[in-house]
Design a protein around this nucleic acid. Structure first.
Length: 131
RNA sequence: GCAGAUGGCCAGGCGUUCGCUGCGUCAGAUUCUGGCGGAGAGGAAAGUCCGGGCUCCACAGGACACGAUGGUGGGUAACGCCCACCGUCCGCGAGGAUAGGGCAAGUGCAACAGAAAGCAAACCGCCUGAACAACACACUUCUUGGAAGAGUGUUGUGAAGCGAAGUCGGCAACGGCUUUCCAGGUAAGGGUGAAACGGUGCGGUAAGAGCGCACCAGCGAUUCGGGUGACUGAGUCGGCUGGGUAAACCCCAUUGGGAGCAAGGCUAAGCAGAAGGAUGUGCGUCCUUGGGCGCACGCGAUUCGGUCCGGGUUGUUAUUCCUUCGGGUCAGCUGCUGGAGGUGUCGAGCAAUCGGCAUCGUAGAUAAAUGGACGCCCGCGACGGGCAACUGUCGUCGACAAAACCCGGCUUAUCGGCCAUCUGCAGGC
RNA sequence: UGGGAUAUAGAGUAAUUGGCAACACAACAGGUUUUGAUCCUGUUAUUCAAGGUUCGAGUCCUUGUAUCCCAU
């Protein structure tokens, strides 16, 4: 399915400003044992992704490793995702999270989130005041 | 061979493929895309404990505070770092550790124990004399059952108490009263304590004591020798000694402007201001008698490391200055990597290090670039096979940890190895 | 990135310039009570870690760890 499209990940496809991150945290979210995903729609028709790893995951080497694994998982799966979304990926504090776990979690969670975005918006209204 | 000591080095390797960030070049195109080439984390990049470069601010000075350092000589841009040496301590040794100036300027501290914890004595104890008592000896007088006196020797007492002596009461245990507890010498001994005013021996003495002597340890002065110096070797003399603690205050010597690349500079975009405070006086000069300008003093603000003195700048009646609160933006470029640079070699030096020559081009990210997958080799671990060398399979297996303006150090973390020199023990020739 | 502070029983605080780590709360055990509450008694500390100075360190010095705060 994605063998014709290059698996690139350039700077335009990344979320880099604090405001964009804050907008995503107010959006729809879903998570499992390995991953937490925040999603919001954006105006232009491209996918963007941001990665956030807190200091509780260890020192700089361990944090960089998790960021790279998350970016690599997104890079392999980006053409399976719909257009016009901003994603923020936050890993859970687990030592056994590898690339395959992140890939399967990302695939399952984005499918769930897309379904929730297209259904009548009951969930976002309920999540807004709590956050 | 085993056990160590010191110094240095490496930080899994190779290949294919999909990606990431700069650079060079070419093409499209107009600041983006593509092709090609080449580059892309460390010995600690870490902690931010010191020192410097660089940038901005401030750059008359003085006094007092404050911080840091502390053997000597050298190295360095500088250092709290490094090298060499000295002293002290530890180790059989190779070696290791060392904040290592001054308690003879002053102040302070030392719980408990101990007689006593700092300035020299007091106390216990030991000794002498006097006094009192008892006993013994011999003497004198009166006199012969004996008494009195003074003497010598021995013993006992001899600072407050269960003391001594006398006397009274009581069968006794004991109780009451009276008297007395004087004058010196001595620091050998006195359980303790981390630490106690030199140690041992002989002499000496009433008892003792560096009181004297010999040796040893320590201090001071001095002579000669070695060293740039810290210091050290040998000798002589002296009084015999004056404790410890300064990572206790302190003293001495040396030294220290402030803030930091989010420094600083440029461009673009955007917004909304509000409140409060700021004293004048004199002189000179110019013109239209009301102001302008300048100077001095005063006052306000700010700055000169913290305070004071004393300076600098600025304002002093208004399109100015200062303070506080609020609003907006937080985008891009630059600084940004060629520097106290790396490697090799020669020379100086014990070394740290320095100099000459040759050669190399070696990260620049900004929610922050080095990653993913596969294969082979290496190492490790587990389970097997084999007498052994070795070999098969498996592994979310591969130390600590990632630049953020740049250097020099220090400290801390670290799987597994390699090399060189040296020491001790055991064995063989 | 720069600056500052703190760490003591389960949680909260003391420890007067170095000399036996204290207090109330909580927990546990025992006692009082018919039972419970109250009350009484007792127990519970690697003073954040390592090293040094000192006869002796919670205290002084050095290094590290963790947490919190401030500026931009």
């Amino acid at each position: 399915m994605s063998e014709f499209k290059p698996l690139l990940l350039s700077q335009e496809q990344r979320i880099r400003s604090g405001g964009d991150f804050r907008r995503c945290y107010n959006g729809v979210r879903a998570g499992d044992d390995h991953l937490l995903v925040f999603v919001v729609r954006n105006e232009n028709k491209c996918r963007r992704v941001g990665v956030s790893v807190s200091k509780k995951h260890g020192n700089a080497v361990k944090r960089n490793r998790k960021k790279r694994l998350l970016r690599e998982a997104y890079r392999g799966l980006q053409h399976d995702l719909p257009q016009g979304l901003d994603l923020v990926l936050v890993p859970r504090q687990r030592a056994d999270s590898g690339l395959e776990e992140f890939r399967s979690s990302l695939r399952r969670l984005t499918r769930k989130l897309v379904r929730r975005l297209e259904s009548p918006r009951m969930r976002p209204v309920r999540t807004e005041p709590s956050s």
